[in-house]
Computed example of a mutant assay.
Amino acid sequence: MTIQLRHETLDDIAAIEAVTTAAFADAPHTSHTEQFIVRALRAANELTLSIVAETLNQIVGHVALSTVTITDAHGHKTTGWHGLGPISVLPAWQGQGIGSRLMKQALAELRAVQAAGCVLLGDPAYYGRFGFQAHAGLQLPGVPPGYFMALAFHGPVPEGIAHYSDAFNATA
């Protein structure tokens, strides 16, 4: 089985939505709005990267990245950071390394464009293997601190509050 990773095309949009919906259907700790978030990011032209995993002419995985701003206690904004997510793999294809390949590709592409770093919300046991760590000085309001993690590509992880696109509020 060969898995090809590539950037999304217009023809992939329906399949990406289906993969995202299926991937989160039985997931704990979800509001089941992930597919709407991807749609809203795309509509707002705020997808930094949108990478699909394809095999046998079927999209089986997807990862979305968008810009994030971090504001410190003095109101200074740090840019150059990106938020990873949602990341989705069809349930029948999970556990085969597709999510890991999507993660590695996404991080490599962010490094290639000289991004400062990447943040995400997720399971520390899974994302720690890619170098993500929780940082006491970096917060996402309403989220348990251990589940909001960052990976700096150069320089330190900034302190402050992370602000994602308004598209993350999409519910339909």
Rank of each mutant, 00 (worst) to 15 (best):
L120S: 00
N57S: 15
A53L: 05
A134I: 05
L102T: 02
Y126S: 07
R6K: 14
L90Q: 13
Q4C: 12
H62W: 08
Q105T: 14
A116F: 00
L151E: 08
A44W: 02
D12M: 13
A92S: 15
A115L: 07
T20P: 04
A125C: 01
F24H: 11
G61R: 06
I51R: 01
D11Q: 12
H74N: 11
Y126T: 12
V63G: 08
V52S: 08
V63S: 12
P86C: 13
G80P: 08
P158E: 06
P156F: 00
A22I: 07
I161D: 00
Q139H: 06
V19T: 14
Q114I: 05
A106I: 04
V63P: 05
Q114M: 11
Q58K: 15
T2C: 00
E159A: 11
H163W: 02
S31H: 04
A43W: 09
A64H: 05
S50D: 08
P144N: 13
G80N: 08
H62R: 04
Y147A: 08
I161H: 00
E54W: 05
L138V: 03
A43Q: 15
M103N: 08
F130N: 02
V68H: 00
A22K: 11
A15R: 12
Q58G: 08
R39Y: 00
N57K: 13
W81A: 07
I16N: 02
A167D: 00
H154E: 14
A115K: 01
Y126R: 09
N169A: 11
V89R: 06
H7F: 14
A15Q: 15
Y164N: 03
A92C: 13
R39Q: 11
F153M: 10
P86H: 09
G131W: 10
L47P: 00
G146A: 14
R111D: 06
V38N: 01
A125N: 03
L121S: 01
I161P: 00
F168P: 05
R39K: 14
V143D: 04
Y164T: 01
C118A: 15
Q35I: 00
F168D: 04
S31G: 11
T171N: 07
L41W: 05
C118K: 06
D123Q: 10
F130V: 11
G122C: 09
A22P: 08
F132Y: 14
P156T: 09
T30P: 08
D11N: 04
D26P: 07
A53R: 02
F24R: 12
Y127Q: 10
T48L: 05
M1V: 13
A162C: 13
A108D: 14
I87R: 07
T55M: 10
A136I: 03
R129M: 06
A170P: 08
R39E: 10
E54Y: 04
Q114G: 01
S165L: 06
R6W: 13
H62F: 15
I13H: 09
T20V: 12
L47R: 07
A15Y: 01
